[in-house]
Design a binder for these strands. Structure first.
Lengths: 367, 367
DNA sequence: CTGTTAGCGCCTTCAA
DNA sequence: TTGAAGGCGCTAACAG
């Protein structure tokens, strides 16, 4: 049996007051104003006399009152939840972007404090849809989708439909590090120039004299994978090189880089360079080469993508393409809050910067 | 002006039906049952005739109905939100734990699907409290706090008070990789044995003959920092070594390890070993040593803590103490859902395993 | 097994 | 500048 706010409107503090969570009515009673007034000072978007506001805030403090989110969301038909979807939160690629987005959203000291939260799909299409539904259920204010998308047409359609419904319900949709989507449900897209960055990277490797270049790609059905691979291939084509047998797919982790590199070596013992889909994979490649008794870059050059913090500290330091993850994440956060105008056409391309370091060198004499 | 569900109870599909988000009443009308029945099939915790359920589910599908979370939470006075607080989501230490917790929670195909969500405090006490308030506002079902706590008494008291209020309101509290808290608001605690692991690590280093051992600690006011440092000191003490001047504090990142190591070298040029507060810091230490022209472990041995995935791939591979992050995170998730009984006394200590690898070796002849 | 009836706590017109 | 009143969409007793 709960003592409702109005029930004790005329009483002083009671035992039950200490045990039950206070409601807005309790605050109103204590501050001698109507619930409506309390609501107004709490939301701050309506004129309230300074003295009244004072009294209300004091009552809030004394009662340790915390707004009931669900009730508030229900009545206002809006919520302060912002969801950030990531494919693998254990990968700093996502951790950095998501952290930056969350920080940007948290910094906004605006009217209603937003609750920005990270949702880890683990790369599973089902969980991606589940999270989207859950966020839709919460009537999320905004959703940020980060990283490469799955290219399976069925899943893409399902996601598109979900996003359309979310957008219909007023949820802002922002894509960060993910290619644009057809339709007008997406508020803004920050797309990484994976193709261009990859192209410059492989150009660099070719420029060092390498001709037998292996490529360790990510999972085949991801946009990120495809775009980076396309950039790589366009560089090869421009140099007149054809080596379709020298591409091995795997996941975006270290183990995959290790295994794929051994496979590349098997296919082409005269390999002199390995370009990897990302830095983590590149480090796996380095490990495999070492275990085979090969020197980096003396025998084989290695290059990565993204430029994670540890890449500069690797031995040798990793040549890679730097993606501005923090900046992109922060911008996505601001776009999700509508603090920043969407780029023209709703799409901005974020370019990577080639970072030439110790892991790539001129092809060995015998190459 | 919104067409409410009951308003069109007797009509067929209309334009507005396509544009407005359907409500439970719409579904009820379409399935020719009462709203209560729809609620019952949706929540699945009440007997409903198979045929009725069928009809309801079909209506749900046809209308693309999605439950209104806020309304549901308000009525039921509970929510399906689970918050996971982390200090730095860009650090895989947290990414791995949080990802595992989220996966464990997502796997639970129980009654109501839980929305587990990661909140990145960035190590800021204010943001930690803000997130706790926001989660309290959402009437979260559970909160998981991961990683070391701040030892500032004022902040600790504030957090304690918040947790007490959350617990009062029925929120389950789980600590993962964080020392136990006084009081009974915490449902379960999984504490890492930082002291013991650190002790064994430094014992190992001493056993290799090292006597001038530098220590790169984390931020001074974190429990994790203090416990690991205490373990280190107890090992030194047991070996009769006193070297308080050889401890440098910093943050838990690579840069800090780099700078701190240079400082240690300045204080003690004859240094033969560096023990770091975590793996990331240890890699920074390695980089500093290399830049000084010193070999690891030939000139100076280096050891880390935690055993992140890249640590085994470092050159040389890093000696460290392996913490079972995934297992702990998953268990914390299950504890948060009440799927697993709390350990006796509410507290379980999770031990680390010494991983001896290439970065530590016998002290050099001249040492 | 199913319908009816009250609210959950807050926001938001409308009046004053 | 403030109060009064109704309803947001759903759940949870109660009946039947």
């Amino acid at each position: 049996m709960r003592a409702s706010g109005s029930d004790r409107r005329d009483h002083g503090p009671t035992v039950s007051e200490a045990e039950m969570t206070a409601t807005l009515a309790d605050v109103a009673a204590r501050a001698q104003v109507s619930p409506a007034t309390v609501s107004r000072v709490l939301n701050g978007n309506y004129p309230v006399a300074a003295a009244t506001r004072e009294r209300v805030l004091r009552a809030v403090d004394e009662l340790d009152y915390v707004l009931n989110g669900p009730a508030s969301s229900l009545a206002a038909a809006t919520s302060d939840l912002v969801g950030i979807l990531v494919n693998d939160i254990a990968d700093p690629f996502f951790g950095i972007m998501a952290g930056a987005a969350q920080a940007a959203i948290g910094e906004e000291r605006g009217a209603r404090e937003k609750l920005s939260v990270i949702c880890n799909t683990g790369g599973s299409p089902e969980r991606e849809l589940t999270y989207l539904t859950l966020l839709q259920r919460q009537r999320a204010a905004a959703v940020i989708l980060t990283g490469g998308a799955l290219e399976d047409p069925e899943h893409a359609a399902a996601v598109g439909a979900k996003l359309a419904r979310l957008a219909d319900a007023g949820t802002r949709i922002v894509l960060c590090g993910r290619p644009p989507l057809p339709g007008d449900s997406v508020t803004a897209t920050l797309a990484f120039d994976n193709r261009g960055g990859s192209r410059r990277l492989t150009d660099h490797v070719i420029g060092l004299g390498h001709r037998r270049i292996g490529y360790v790609a990510g999972p085949p059905e991801r946009t990120t994978t495809r775009h980076r691979l396309e950039g790589h291939r366009s560089a090869l084509a421009a140099a007149g090189l054809r080596q379709d047998g020298l591409v091995v797919h795997g996941s975006y982790d270290r183990r995959s880089g290790y295994d794929a590199t051994l496979e590349l070596l098997r296919r082409e013992p005269e390999l002199t360079a390995v370009v990897a889909a990302n830095d983590t994979v590149a480090l796996g490649a380095c490990a495999a080469l070492r275990d085979r008794g090969l020197c980096v870059p003396g025998d084989v050059s290695v290059a990565g993508f993204v430029d994670l913090p540890f890449s500069a500290d690797a031995v040798p330091a990793l040549t890679t393409v730097r993606l501005p993850l923090s900046e992109a994440g922060a911008r996505a956060g601001r776009l999700a809050l509508g603090l920043e105008p969407a780029p023209p056409g709703g799409i901005a391309t974020v370019h990577g910067e080639l970072m030439v370091r110790g892991s790539t060198g001129a092809v060995r004499a015998g190459g």
